[in-house]
Design a protein around this nucleic acid. Structure first.
Lengths: 211, 211
DNA sequence: CGCACCATACCGTCCGGTCGGTATGGCGTC
DNA sequence: GACGCCATACCGACCGGACGGTATGGTGCG
């Protein structure tokens, strides 16, 4: 599907990568349908021939950019410092703090491609929907182990699962981005993340969670 | 702006209303850019002439449908039974339960028009963005009084405001809709709403919030 | 040569928007 | 109440441009 491991590292990435980067940026800013193939080619500095050489259709690009998003953000989070604390709950809280710290500057720079993309195409393109869904749920799954470890370490019970809490963190983040757009202010997003942090502290009886 | 009380009742309301209803349904299902003016006219059973008679552009329809959404959902929530409990905290929890109960059946039937619309046009159409932002934040504001009453009644302090918690409920709901699309399952949305309810119970020390 | 990679010109369709025209009904005048 | 006048509501053919996609050809490299 994507057999492109270029051996001779070409400057600034090849056309395919540049198209994916352009798609990531333009779709986050303007949406999928509003971003034309010509826009993408112009932003990537390539021509239409290159586009349809690498992607058999615009929809195929949608799938590819969702997978690209999943891989690049996956690498970013895997290398992030929030894994360092020895206490699993501290790692979960550090993840939340890391996500909050990412929310600043331009909107299109901190919002989630998968979240915006899936809203548009959820019923018109099953392939893109599935790719975005995997990106979101796979990322959520990376939090489950720490949540479960924190839970068993502290003997926390309750009628919730580590999986559902992990997914809830993603729901809060996705919703936070929408609130930031609604109020035209990134602070609204950070406030929701603050509530998420407070919730987790309360769930685990950690300091700082007192109402 | 809309002085149309036709005396010879033409079946099913006037064209403007039918166009707004069609826009609400089609945009929720397919997004704004993917819904053409012809699609809207076909769904509403009117012609293009009628469309541009009532709306000077497609963007103007976007603004109008966001306001239409705000008014119709505002009336729905104003008349909903969650206002009945005497205890303000019970009213807040009843609101959350009401929202959870709304999440079933078809995705396009329970998702939020303003949330999906604002994701697409937040930087390409300031007017539509503002209208959607108002719809979301005005609705959040309707919860503030009950939250504040619950807080002072129970003597709850803490470093959060009623406004931020009201907005957080909307963030969770918006994010829950995205999760439902990601997993192609409304249950994912309900799970996030469950976490929201648990958070509120924990904040107020209410029964059922124990982890 | 053969193949991957890409450029350019082009095609048919669909899109948002325009425009001339019609039907209807309220209203003032006599 | 008959008539002229006009605003509102709506129709549907049409336009120019943008859209996704294709066909063809060039170029460098093993």
């Amino acid at each position: 599907m994507s057999p492109r491991p270029p051996l001779n590292a070409p400057e600034r990435g090849d056309a395919r990568t540049r198209l994916l980067e352009a798609a990531r940026d333009l779709i986050r800013a303007s949406g999928f349908a509003s971003t034309s193939v010509d826009d993408l080619c112009r932003a990537a500095g390539v021509t239409k021939g290159a586009f349809f050489h690498h992607f058999e259709s615009k929809e195929a690009l949608g799938v590819a950019v969702a997978e690209f998003w999943s891989q690049t953000t996956g690498a970013l989070f895997a290398a992030a410092p929030y894994h360092e604390p020895a206490d699993p709950l501290d790692r979960v809280l550090a993840y939340v703090a890391f996500r909050r710290a990412l929310i600043d500057g331009d909107r299109a720079a901190y919002t989630c491609l998968a979240g915006t993309l899936i809203q548009e195409v959820h019923d018109s393109s099953p392939a893109v929907r599935a790719a975005c869904g995997r990106a979101i749920l796979d990322h959520a799954a990376t939090l489950e182990a720490d949540i479960e470890a924190a839970r068993s370490q502290r003997g926390i019970r309750g009628d919730w699962t580590a999986q559902s809490l992990a997914r809830h963190t993603q729901a809060v983040l996705q919703g936070a981005f929408i609130l930031a757009k609604a109020g035209d202010d990134a602070a609204l997003a950070r406030e929701s993340v603050d509530h998420l942090e407070r919730y987790i502290r309360l769930l685990f009886g950690a300091p700082g969670g007192a109402p």
